[in-house]
Design a protein around this nucleic acid. Sequence first.
DNA 1: ACCAGTACTCAGTAACACTAGATACTGCGG
DNA 2: CCGCAGTATCTAGTGTTACTGAGTACTGGT
Lengths: 114, 114
Amino acid sequence: MGKQITEMLKGTLEGIVLAILAIRPAYGYEITAQLRERGLSDIAEGTIYALLVRLEKRGSVAAEKVPSEKGPPRKVYSLTDAGHDQLDEFWSTWNFLVERIEQLNDRSERGEHR
Amino acid sequence: MGKQITEMLKGTLEGIVLAILAIRPAYGYEITAQLRERGLSDIAEGTIYALLVRLEKRGSVAAEKVPSEKGPPRKVYSLTDAGHDQLDEFWSTWNFLVERIEQLNDRSERGEHR
DNA sequence: ACCAGTACTCAGTAACACTAGATACTGCGG
DNA sequence: CCGCAGTATCTAGTGTTACTGAGTACTGGT
């Protein structure tokens, strides 16, 4: 899949993570694992951590340190109210974009010439 | 719509322009106008020109200078074979991403907890 | 002569994901 | 006991991409 998906994830990965946290709170390592399960296997470890720090600074998520039986303590993140708002906004922007692009797909596939 | 759409366009705008050129050849100013018509009104003029230069360097599009009755000569771009291939790849990557994200939308809307 | 519309170009900036490491804690096999 | 795999997080530096804001150039109308 390569580089194309990387660029496409800019702006959407943040929404993806917010959506995952909306299902239930999770920590970075776990989120990465979930993304891999969901087929987004090319996402780098470090990316998620950087993203979570950004979201926390912005107040979209709150972190709670929870000791782990294996390894260092986990930082479990959950959505704040602001985070839910941001997620709603993400969905509306995403749906908007999908509509416009789907339109283009139809037109070019049918070879339309306005 | 603001900043969110800007980030989301990274990686997709290129595909959008390729798709527009697949319908029929066009020049920069025209492409910008078409994007505005299609509701993508926040896209800056300069962005499209920079993108077209990038695509031309990569060999995805070919330019032909055509004199205009009003204003400087137009650079009319059309897809090369490589451009068509890139567009196909764009669609498959895009569809892949849409599937994964749509999945997430279902789950979080229904409040599922796996 | 001036301005609006057409059409393109360019230097500098910001945001985001990736790379490639480092750090730290647990439990298991040699 | 030591090293290694698995768990878990963090960081500095890099590349790609879109935006900002300015400039150039040509036409037609007032």
